[in-house]
Design a protein around this nucleic acid. Sequence first.
DNA 1: CGCATGTGGATTTTT
DNA 2: TCCACATGCG
Length: 632
Amino acid sequence: MGGLERLEEEILGQLNPRQREAVLDCSSTCVVNANVGSGKTTVLVAKLLYLYYMKNVSYSQMIVLTFTHKAAEEIRGRLEAREGRLPPEQLTGFGTFHSVAYRLLKQILPVEELGYTREFTVLLPEQELELARELIRREGYKIKYPARLPKRLEAAMRLGSQGRSSVEGKRLDKLQDDIWVLAGALEQEKKHRNTMTFRELLVHGETLLRKYPITPAWIVIDEVQDSDGQQLAFLDALRGRDTRLFAVGDPNQIIYGWRGSSINACFTLVHRYGARELTLPMNYRSGSRILEVAGRFKQYGDKLAVGRESGGQVRIRQAYDPLGEAYYLAEQIRLLQEKGVALEQIAVFYRLQAQGDILTDVFSREGICYQVVTRRERPVGETYLEEEGIAIYGKESGGSHVPSETAPEYNDRSLPIPSHEVDGMRRRQEESGSSSGVRLMTLHASKGLEFTYVFIIGVNYGLIPLHSAGFDEEEEERRLLFVGITRARDYLELSYYTQPGIPGVTPGESRYLQMIPERMVERVDITPVTETVNFSDKALYVEENVKTPSNPVMTAASALSGKRKISRHDRGNTAEKEDVDVEQTPIRRVRHAKYGLGTVTEESADGIKVDFGEMGVKSFLKDFVILETVAE
DNA sequence: CGCATGTGGATTTTT
DNA sequence: TCCACATGCG
């Protein structure tokens, strides 16, 4: 008895009262609203331990669902840190929605009923598209908007045959092409080839679970706020009569509404199952100033309780344009680095991936070590699937059965690493000191991470919130900024462009920045480091910039150490300089890899027109073209 | 074929 | 708001 009590104390001892309440909860459905930094994963793992030791629920009777492999690994890792290594057969219910569905279909559910065999494979999105193109070629389907095939096909598949009849003949269907026929044929073809997409893992899993229910004792879900309709339906089918459901999430961090259903999954669960709702208050990992600012963007639940202890700084800064911003950041980062700050403790967030390009460009030239945090261009899903032993279409599944540790080697298929990343890595190796580099990422990618210094750039109207964001999306944009802000531990800097040079982006600060009371922030107007150059010519720019000693501006480093040397510059002066520079446009000769030598005839903020003589006059987007400036 | 007109989609990312 | 693509007319 004493042993059991000691064990309970060991599991619950580290928790605060609210966390403890969540772990002890035994309602049939419980939704925990976990604020940022409230110890969500700690609670989740404690819950699993508590169920195992105190409630005698074996791990194989639990289904533990996450959205990403990373999250699944973290939970398993923390559990195993306490439990020692657990045999995989006990953990078949642990993993992402998709991997759990996969295992059920492989091992328990009668897939034959749906026209599949146990040897089915998973069809990756690109492969499905390839299959569709093959069908178009083979059957001679006429499909309009070839460039939009992925989206149109997805819509057609989602709506299915019902969607077809409901849309047929109406305005939506006036294109009169074979997209519906293609969708049907593709469905057949996938069954014929014994393969299913990620989505179909859940769809088919749901269908079969409804007919052949399994009854786990507990279902535990991490980050519920991210689930879409299909995942909730799968969950509903997975849940037996006596299954208890424990879901943890944060409605303030719904930033993926655009790819799932627009309804909030937390609210859906509460309505559908009459769930008990609990709230975990925030721990003060961020400085109170930063929390105060974050509170302006919080939409659900209690106001953030702000402790009295000071700490954490928030600054709002004006930047000239994206290039000037990049050089400013390079400077700031160098100063922080000189102060001994580890580069991986510094992060820059932006709204669009394209905004990262100019940063990588400038950082490379300036010798700043960086790392772009993206998942997009790499076959991460594939890598993980292979590690989990999930059979992928077109690759030899080493036998009819489930995962074995013989993972075949197809690493040669991995996509090429973008060159800027190679640069970053090379620099990383050269500089023996820092192991990684400054983190550059979209606000979306920042979710779940934490840094000492955070710079959020381009907080202009038209970027944050994004210009095309409608009324519904607007709230999500606000949550996106909330997520970004709450990643900062000690220092947060928000900046906007006065000359964004991006279509649809208004000069000047976003309405969101005006939502922050002045008393919470310091405002800084910094004379752009870049004001003296025609920003179209990056190469030229660098040369001039290197020669120019940098302005004595207030830096993030000095701000934190208390030394303040703000230099506010006279605006009239700045405007004059700008005028002068815009007018001087020297004749420039450039070289293009394909068209050879040419003369620049016209140039705007993001476009450039070059006369290549016999090859003709070509227009390029500056972001994509590589032009070498030729000296005369 | 060239041109005018209309329409729908744009950005964020995981499995 | 702007851009790419489809369609229809001359």
